[in-house]
Amino acid sequence: MRILVVEDERRLARAIGHGLEDHGFAVELAHDGDTGLWLAREQEFDAIVLDLMLPGLPGYEVCKRLRAEGCWTPILILTARDSDDAEARGLDLGADDFLRKPFSYQVLIARLNALLRRGAPARPAKLLVDDLELDPARRTVRRGTASIELTRREFSLLEYLMRNIGQTRSKAEILDHVWGADFDREPNVVEVYVGYLRRKIDQPFGTDTIQTIRGHGYLVGSDG
């Protein structure tokens, strides 16, 4: 079994690596989020041990990007934070389990073995609004029999709106979920990208999937 350990504290990373190797695992180490993300994209791993507080990309963002790209390798998050909010956020972004520092190697091994027995999580179901279909696993969008090419950001925006069908989402909510809480550009970027989406998924087909709810935000489907 191959494990990717993404941990910026080098002594701890080496210790985790040696401990896992002593239990028969093959281990690859990364000490920042960018390297961890690259390795997870380029190589096959059976599980990922991911610290949250990383230089470069934080662990939250690494997890979010991997799941958005269709990587369903089990992820065990490590954090020094004693916070239910941190745990909930990590799990919401697609992590499979959570382990607070300090921890014993016995518990780490037990958690990893449990994840490996469980296997990769099931791929998410396709999302449908009328004849518009979005497949989160394959990262594809279709309108009827027509394939629609979207950029990564356009896809994430459409997926967020389709997952919240019938619910109006504000620009602030969209920015937080699609661009990330640390995004510092003007909220009008949401309006720009909604325009991009409409030109691809609606205008060529004479449809009106994304509605503007003035003063509130955007809506896919009916609000009842």
Rank of each mutant, 00 (worst) to 15 (best):
L52V: 12
D92F: 00
K64S: 09
P55T: 06
D51C: 06
V62R: 03
L54W: 03
K64H: 05
A68Q: 08
A86P: 14
D97H: 10
D51Q: 02
Y60G: 02
A80C: 14
P55G: 02
V62K: 01
C63A: 11
P74M: 14
G94D: 01
V49H: 11
D51F: 04
L52Q: 09
T73R: 01
W72R: 11
E69F: 05
D84E: 10
D96Q: 15
R65G: 14
D85W: 06
L52K: 08
L54R: 10
L93Q: 05
G59A: 03
M53Q: 14
D82F: 10
T73A: 11
C71D: 12
Y60M: 00
A88Y: 09
A47E: 01
L50E: 03
E61T: 03
A95D: 00
E69P: 07
D82K: 12
L50Y: 02
D85M: 13
L50Q: 06
F98M: 09
E87Q: 15
G59D: 02
L91K: 12
C71L: 14
D85T: 14
A86G: 11
F98C: 11
L78T: 01
S83I: 05
D92S: 13
E61G: 00
P55D: 01
G56H: 07
E61N: 10
P58G: 08
S83V: 06
C63Q: 08
T79P: 13
T79D: 10
A47M: 13
A68E: 10
G94W: 03
Y60V: 00
L91D: 00
I75F: 04
D85Q: 14
S83Q: 10
M53H: 12
L78V: 06
P58S: 02
E87S: 14
P74Y: 00
L91V: 06
L78F: 15
E69W: 05
A80Q: 12
D96Y: 08
D92H: 07
L78H: 02
D92K: 14
A95F: 04
M53C: 12
D92N: 14
M53S: 12
L54H: 04
K64R: 15
D85C: 11
C71K: 13
